[in-house]
Nucleic acid binder design. Structure first.
Length: 877
RNA sequence: GGAAGUUUAGCUCAGCUGGUUCAGAGCAUCUGCCUUACAAGCAGAGGGUCGGGGGUUCGAAUCCCUCAACUUCCA
């Protein structure tokens, strides 16, 4: 026998992944005779490389899909990638910069050519990496959010929603990213607490020589955009200023002093500068008081000529300079340290500038309603359910969705502007022209039309994903094709809570809007993979291991199980190499269990009846374990399902069962036991497969030669048969005796090689005789007898059975007595607590019958044990 | 500032509707073993007044109140 004692994953992984691919075993075709089970992958960004989060997320998906496949379902896992507008455009812009090309010097078409080249080159990397993990996606279905057909459906949906009046164009205060030079949705803004300064600035009251009012602001560079000063009408400090005007320092522009209860009298000085162009609250206030809007910032965050001073300076430089200017002018009262929450771009990390601009919006008011309802009523279940609260909070307070982005990479907005200042929305320029000429009774030609320069928010395509991977025409036709009818709604979605609103909620919205049906039944929300210090793993911190390196080192199976050992749904995963090491060790354990079995020689003439009890025990235990595992899966407790599998395989199968039936060294095994053991091993491999697809498939084929159709990936998940708890209970008792003998040896410093005689004063000797050979083997006994008393022996009690091991003169009677005494005292104390309960009338009257029954049994057990212990004590004299 | 969640062994977490799965699991730790499947292993062992305080109850890790700490979401 020349199987290596250590499992080498690399070879098996390459071999079996290629095998599965070659024979198209991940492929799913419509089959009405089978129940579909569908997962759509959360499409990773084309800019992405595999990180630890992907590993966790995709391992979970693969576990689910592989188990579903074995359950006989038509398992379909659709892979793909997302075009990621901002991130990809930023990557391409950087690449061009390195090539010495400025994006501004390119036309849109030229830029897109570079972008597509970039995408073709790098966009598929992450999917290749997923294969290393073992992901059993139907790769023939690989989709990309900017594929022509998918793009077409995005545009169709835009036009449709526009026609329904749900999409509109409007001036709004948006989150402007001056670095990315685009508007962002609220969700793409990350609030961070920043140490800043509060500037106290004095504004002269118009028409006076020395009267001032003081405002406090964190943004002194915006004073040139002020259009009013606002005070609270209830504030007695400012009643004398009513109707007057103030002069903006440095530029001396007069602005009215207005009153509004909105102003917090406690904060700052009680005077608020109103700058509608650069603050969302001021903007609202401006609307209310019909104030003008002065925008002093350029799109790139520099000051424009409306600022009059510091024109061309960056907003942050201007802030510093204006502080100095105000100080020199004697109008800076003081500067205080201040902590404020400042929005940052999720993508570029630039400080967000509230900016008024013309953008496209989707009205969310009506369209979100069915989506909220379905989650609240558990039509769609979130796992863990605690996310329902968050979901509701968002959906009930959702604001209109800003869907335009000032970028080139993405789906260009199908709005066409006309020379008359109007615009039309249509799928193509030709249609737009027709529409325009009808609507405005004109004779425009194509050259008169100018298409909107902007693209749509990436999520505006991703929200169609569970539909458009199957059917890109349904948005136009309203008639689902066969694929969509069969695979939709999908079953489970596995993703991160971070994108619950970005993506999950919007997919649900789109599902109901276009198909009147949920996009998936379950949403499994994973946690974030963190390092030992609790920090999120990130490239910039350099605290993340390289996933491919990990796979190379520990094997894909080891990494997969390692990722799942400690990651209940919704919980963060504190990553530690120890986890994947444990996974690797587990694979090795299975490998060696196989080596053992494979190494046996079979002697058909041998009688295997002494192993029957062991086999019967394991079969019952297997079904018990399997029942438990199935329950965990059904509740999406993947970690627990893995742990139950781990213990069943390692503890019950390897540590107990194999040791029980293992023939002595270089002795053959009987045919019956061997066959049963192989059968059991096959069951083990089946339940391991979703977690550890590679090693399980490898051993499956090493057991015997099998055809493609007989591959483990296609095998049937074992049926959980009924089991007899009594058999499991009895075996436990025998195991306990084994443990006690071993324990006794260890505590006396005896070698395990030293065989011992064991006598049991058993209520039911049959229980032990059926496992007689097992007991002898595992506890290393020279004999097993039944007797109610053995002189000069050490003893212990299991349940109510006394066990004796004669030790001749070496027995320390006093020590033995002390041990028994200790046990006795504990049991008596326990009995007392039980009796106390049972003698309490209110307990007996109030507790349910089964609880009382239980207490009575406790009493009986304790009494029996006490009796046995007392007898032991008495025998010692 | 508003809301939710978390707090159980050194670490990561189970413990469903109050009563034998009630104090658990894995890892880590300690002790003894290179016992021919596996030292990536085997056999044993020790570790927690279930965040603090109060209450309800015959009975609380579990229900209620309160305080504290941490996390997340929203502003």
């Amino acid at each position: 026998m020349s199987i290596a004692s250590k499992y080498d994953p690399a070879q098996a992984e390459a071999k079996w992944y290629a095998y599965w691919m070659e024979h198209k075993l991940f492929s799913s075709k419509i089959d009405p005779s089978k129940e579909p089970y569908t997962i759509v992958i959360p499409p990773p960004n084309v800019t992405g490389v595999l990180h630890m989060g992907h590993m966790l997320n995709n391992t979970i998906q693969d576990v689910l899909i592989r188990r579903a496949r074995m359950l006989g379902k038509n398992a379909c896992w659709v892979p793909g990638t997302d075009h990621a507008s901002i991130a990809t455009e930023a990557k391409v812009v950087n690449m061009l910069k390195e090539m010495g090309i400025d994006k501004k010097s390119l036309t849109r078409e030229e830029f897109l050519k570079y972008a597509w080249e970039w995408k073709e080159k790098y966009g598929g990397i992450i999917l290749e990496q997923l294969k290393k993990l073992g992901a059993s996606c139907d790769w023939d279905r690989t989709a990309f959010t900017m594929d022509p057909a998918l793009s077409n459906s995005v545009i169709t949906v835009f036009v449709d929603l526009y026609k329904k009046g749900k999409i509109y164009r409007g001036i709004r205060m948006v989150n402007w990213d001056p670095k990315g030079q685009t508007a962002l949705s609220d969700d793409e803004v990350i609030m961070k607490e920043i140490a800043s300064k509060l500037y106290y600035i004095q504004y002269k009251i118009e028409g006076t020589k020395d009267q001032f009012l003081t405002i406090a602001t964190t943004r002194p560079e915006t004073i040139m955009a002020d259009v009013a000063i606002c005070v609270n009408p209830n504030d007695p400090r400012f009643t004398h200023l009513k109707g007057k005007k103030a002069l903006i320092p440095l530029i001396n522009r007069a602005i009215p002093i207005i009153e509004d209860e909105y102003v917090d009298m406690e904060f700052g000085t009680g005077c608020l500068k109103v700058t509608p162009a650069h603050d969302i609250n001021d903007y609202e206030l401006g609307l209310k008081h019909k104030l003008e809007v002065i925008d002093i910032l350029n799109d790139n965050g520099t000051l424009n000529e409306k600022a009059q001073i510091l024109v061309g300076e960056d907003r942050f430089i201007a802030r510093k300079k204006i502080g100095k200017l105000l100080d020199e002018a004697g109008q800076l009262e003081k500067i205080e340290d201040y902590k404020s929450n400042v929005g940052h771009s999720e993508r570029t990390d630039a400080v967000i500038e509230p900016k008024l601009s013309l953008q496209w919006f989707l009205n969310m008011e009506e369209i979100t309603k069915p989506a909220l309802k379905s989650v609240m009523e558990d039509t769609i279940q979130l796992h863990p359910s605690k996310f329902k609260n968050m979901y509701r909070a968002w959906m009930e307070n959702v604001r209109d969705w800003c869907i335009s982005r000032q970028l080139w990479w993405g789906h260009r907005i199908p709005a066409f502007y006309l020379p008359n200042g109007e615009f039309v929305v249509a799928k193509t320029a030709e249609e737009a022209l027709k529409l325009a000429n009808e609507q405005f009774r004109s004779n425009y030609t194509l050259t008169d039309l100018t298409q909107d320069e902007d693209v749509l928010d990436t999520w505006f395509s991703a929200w169609l994903w569970p539909i458009s991977v199957f059917d890109t025409d349904v948005f136009a036709t309203g008639k689902p094709n066969e694929e969509l009818k069969y695979y939709y709604p999908t079953n489970d979605l596995v993703t991160a809570p971070e994108i619950l609103f970005f993506w999950v909620a919007r997919m649900i919205i789109a599902g109901y809007e276009y198909l009147g049906e949920k996009p998936f039944k379950n949403v499994y929300l994973t946690g974030i993979v963190r390092d030992k210090l609790g920090r999120k793993m990130s490239k910039s911190l350099g605290n993340s291991p390289d996933p491919l390196e990990l796979i190379a080192q520990y094997g894909a199976d080891g990494v997969r199980t390692g990722m799942l050992f400690s990651s209940p749904a919704g919980n963060d995963l504190p990553y530690d190499d120890k986890l994947v090491e444990q996974g690797r060790n587990f694979a090795n354990k299975i490998w060696n269990a196989f080596r053992l079995v494979k190494g046996w020689e079979i002697d058909p003439s041998l009688d295997g009846s002494s192993n029957e009890a062991s086999i019967a025990w394991f079969e019952n235990r297997f079904n018990e374990g399997l029942t438990e595992i199935n329950e965990h899966f059904e509740k999406f407790r993947i970690s627990d399902a893995l742990m139950a599998t781990y213990k069943l395989v390692w503890d019950d199968f390897c540590s107990w069962y194999l040791e029980m039936i293992k023939p002595a060294y270089q002795h053959p095994i009987d045919q019956q036991t061997y066959d049963k053991t192989i059968e059991i091993f096959e069951g083990i491999l089946k339940i391991l497969h979703p977690f550890m697809p590679f090693i399980s498939e490898e051993l499956w084929h090493q057991i015997k030669e099998r055809s493609v159709e007989e591959s483990l990936i296609l095998a049937t998940w074992p049926k959980a048969e009924n089991f007899d708890p009594k058999i499991i209970e009895e075996a436990k008792q025998v195991f306990e005796v084994v443990s006690q003998v071993r324990n006794l040896r260890a505590s006396k410093g005896m070698s395990p090689k030293e065989a011992l005689d064991l006598s049991i004063n058993a209520k039911n000797p049959e229980l032990y005789t059926q496992f007689a050979t097992v007991l002898s083997k595992l506890a290393n006994l020279s004999s097993l007898n039944f007797a109610d008393k053995v002189d000069n022996s050490m003893s212990f009690v299991v349940k109510a059975d006394e066990c004796f091991i004669p030790m001749g003169d070496s027995v320390n009677i006093e020590e033995e007595k002390a041990n028994i005494q200790k046990d006795l005292e504990y049991t008596r104390g326990f009995l007392n607590s039980v009796l106390k309960k049972l003698s309490n009338e209110r307990f007996v009257a109030g507790a349910p019958a089964n609880v009382i029954e239980m207490e009575r049994k406790k009493q009986a057990d304790a009494e029996a044990k006490i009796k046995a212990l007392e007898e032991s004590l008495a025998k010692l004299g």
